[in-house]
């Protein structure tokens, strides 16, 4: 586990800014590019928390594979220019959103101030990576083996189903 405030706050800044760009940008391509940065920043958080395996999976699946999929969808569906309309939030929605955000942030700060200062968290300043790998192996192949098999079955069904749909459509 990496306990470095500089890396944490840099990654937090990146993930917040690029999330807002993803949601508020009018161009879908720019939103997709910003979302790639969001997913990579998520991988940085996983790595900081000591889960290197999840970080690699996040970077490979959401940082590389999913943007390719979404980019192909954008290429196939952005033919007419009328589909890229400019979305604008109304002034009333913006006001209500700001009020809601203020109440929410105030509630969060009030809740955190009322929490007890000391929890009985496990002391994990140094996570042994061999323990993480062994827990992964035990989780996938012993504790949650049926969930793992169901997930692989689901992936197989999706691949076969999409292929059959494609053939049927052709």
């Amino acid at each position: 586990m990496i306990n470095n405030p500089i890396i944490f706050y840099t990654a937090s800044f990146l993930i917040m800014v690029f999330t807002l760009i993803t949601l508020m940008n009018k161009n879908v391509i720019y939103s997709l590019l910003a979302s790639i940065m969001v997913f990579f920043s998520g991988a940085i958080f996983f790595y900081m928390l000591g889960s290197e395996y999840n970080a690699i999976i996040q970077a490979a699946v959401y940082g590389l594979a999913v943007p390719v999929l979404i980019g192909l969808s954008i290429m196939f569906t952005q033919k007419n220019e009328d589909s890229t309309k400019i979305e604008k939030l109304s002034f009333l929605t913006l006001i209500f959103g700001m009020i809601f955000a203020f109440i929410f942030v105030d509630t969060i700060i009030f809740s955190i101030s009322k929490l007890p200062k000391v929890f009985n968290f496990v002391e994990l300043s140094q996570i042994n990576p061999y323990d993480v790998i062994s827990s992964f192996a035990a989780g996938i192949f012993i504790n949650y083996v049926w969930a793992f098999e169901l997930l692989s079955l689901l992936l197989t069904i999706v691949i076969a189903g999409l292929t059959l749909f494609r053939k049927k459509g052709a």
Partner: peptide
């Protein structure tokens, strides 16, 4: 046990 890591893998 690090169960949250396994759940994250499944959710991904």
């Amino acid at each position: 046990k690090f169960d949250g890591y396994i759940f994250t893998l499944f959710y991904t």
